[in-house]
Design a protein around this nucleic acid. Structure first.
Lengths: 329, 329
DNA sequence: CTGAAAGCGCTTACAG
DNA sequence: CTGAAAGCGCTTACAG
């Protein structure tokens, strides 16, 4: 089934293809009567311009590239939810690129070759060198890029993020103010940008209170962290636990309770994400709330402005955080 | 910064652009020496062919469209994980299209206009009429389409799925064989294709055992289902519960335990997904395991074969399911 | 307001 | 094995 092209429309409406193109892109430039006639034919034929041809001719693909690491992580898919909704509103298509650290350069060149009009960079498993690769490629290709839930210290690229340092600091301080002394931070073995910031905020609060920061690294894999926590209880005293991931906090609570501890009486527990896990645990989990959907939505909105060269208030947006009080703290 | 084009490469390597193109697409057709020379220049200039132009000329975009409803649902993002991994391996790009039921026709035409080479259809909130829209558009545009975790009774489109009817039947039967009588199925108020199949399997098992099927519809929203379950316990007797979603099963257990019930002693509970929720509940949740990542991966693999017109063993693939025994049953 | 023509950056028969 | 040329389906100055 041959798709109808602009030529078919032009022929049926007895105008040139230039006029059909104008009807679609600059309708005010064409005589109302002609316009109506063309519009009618377009409708009859069910004509939709070939996005690829349009992209080549106009050098605009109205497509953005989203660079992620692991889409199955809840925070990533939440952010994508916000991105998708806003992109739809502004009629941009979305291409997904997954990039591991080793092939970052390759992926970036690939994204450029795919002619996206803008880039949303979500991958947060980066070190300094890898960050440099992203910046270099984005600048060279001259493609507007917004870092989403990531930021680079030198502020060379626009970003949308939450103040994880301050949020974690506040939550840790709250626990300290309740009289907790042996407060642990559960973090991940693998390094993530946001987790590093959370660690920073935790350490700051602990240092201020002259308490020793204790970071315990485990895995997001439940059976691994269960084993870690099981062993943990044989030789650590603890009265407070904050976890970079809610699911790890929930798993900790389960192990603690099976070891006879009472939560929150014996141990205060809190998460730093506010996912659905926090609502489905027993007791429910007090959390730092980080508006992940909003981060995606706001980043996409900022990107549309950048792509259209509209004025923007700020290239560096920090969304507000809050603490959601539940049963565990 | 002007991107390097095929002309730049041709000029620098002192060959025609046709030869450069051949080096990239049919290297065996060009003299090894010329080939090396061109390859060297390509590398030096960091040349990557413009994917849009290539798409227009070859009428192949090496892009597939994935049509989803809500990306934030765990099963959807898991499937996308499988799709992304396989697509990467076969060098296809992925465009995401979200479609609500009302705008399905619009979305389908949009997908066609974007010139994708293949379609993966994941949206499972469909009724008969909407299904017809998908089939019609896919056929008309002549774009290979694989239904992913959905299938249509008349088998007009290829699909990859799990036998939800049989899986749920087996799980229900297991509960019945343990002597449970008042077994409820917790399903959703909104209708999903797979949930309807699960209901069917449950009803079949109950009918066979001459027990009355009882379907209780609630929401995925925790506060709503908590209220539902709270009220539920004032006037229902129950000794078994199976839930189309793990998270709903977990929430039910929490409410039940707070109401003084013991699980699994008083009430056997099981989920029909096997998500991470099942590992993080107390007690852990026995589940029907549905290999969602694999569904995505296998569907994408099937689609590559269809797009390349390779031979396929079967257009209708049913992946195996199993029951994962844990503490709740 | 409208049309003829060039051009976007590639691929692909067709000659040679 | 290689090049000249047409063409993919559009957009966009440029004339008129």
């Amino acid at each position: 089934m041959a798709n109808t092209t602009i030529y078919d429309v032009a022929g049926a409406a007895k105008v040139s293809l230039a006029t059909v193109s104008r009807v679609m892109n600059n309708p005010e430039k064409v005589n109302p009567e002609t316009r109506e006639r063309v519009l009618k034919v377009i409708k009859e034929l069910g004509y939709k311009p070939n996005a690829i041809a349009r992209g080549l001719a106009s050098r605009k693909s109205t497509t953005i590239g989203v660079i992620i690491s692991d889409i199955t992580r809840a925070s990533v898919s939440q952010m994508l939810g916000g991105i998708i909704d806003v992109a739809k509103k502004y009629e941009y298509s979305i291409k997904i690129f997954s990039a591991s650290n080793v092939e970052l350069e390759d992926t970036m060149r690939n994204v450029v070759a795919e002619q996206v009009d803008g880039i949303l960079f979500l991958n947060e498993e980066l070190n300094k060198d890898e960050i440099a690769v992203v910046v270099k490629n984005a600048k060279e290709a001259n493609i507007p890029t917004v870092l989403t839930n990531v930021n680079f210290a030198d502020n060379v690229l626009p970003y949308v993020i939450v103040d994880y340092v301050e949020g974690t600091y506040e939550l840790t301080k709250r626990m300290i103010d309740m009289g907790r002394k042996d407060i642990y931070l559960f973090s991940t073995v693998r390094h993530y940008f946001t987790n590093d910031l959370k660690e920073e905020g935790y350490i700051k609060a602990m240092n201020e209170a002259h308490l020793e920061p204790r970071i315990f690294r485990t895995s997001g894999d439940v059976s691994i962290s269960t084993a870690h926590f099981q062993e943990f209880f044989t030789n650590h005293s603890i009265d407070g636990a904050i976890s970079v991931r809610d699911s790890i906090a929930v798993n900790f609570m389960n192990v603690a309770i099976k070891n006879g501890r009472k939560i929150p009486e014996d141990i205060s527990v809190a998460g730093l994400q506010n996912t659905k896990y926090a609502l489905l645990s027993r007791p429910t989990l007090t959390c730092l709330d980080t508006p992940v959907y909003d981060i995606g939505a706001v980043a996409m909105r900022l990107l549309t402005k950048l792509m259209r060269q509209e004025e923007v208030d700020s290239l560096h947006i920090v969304l507000p955080h809050s603490i959601i009080k539940r049963e565990s703290l």
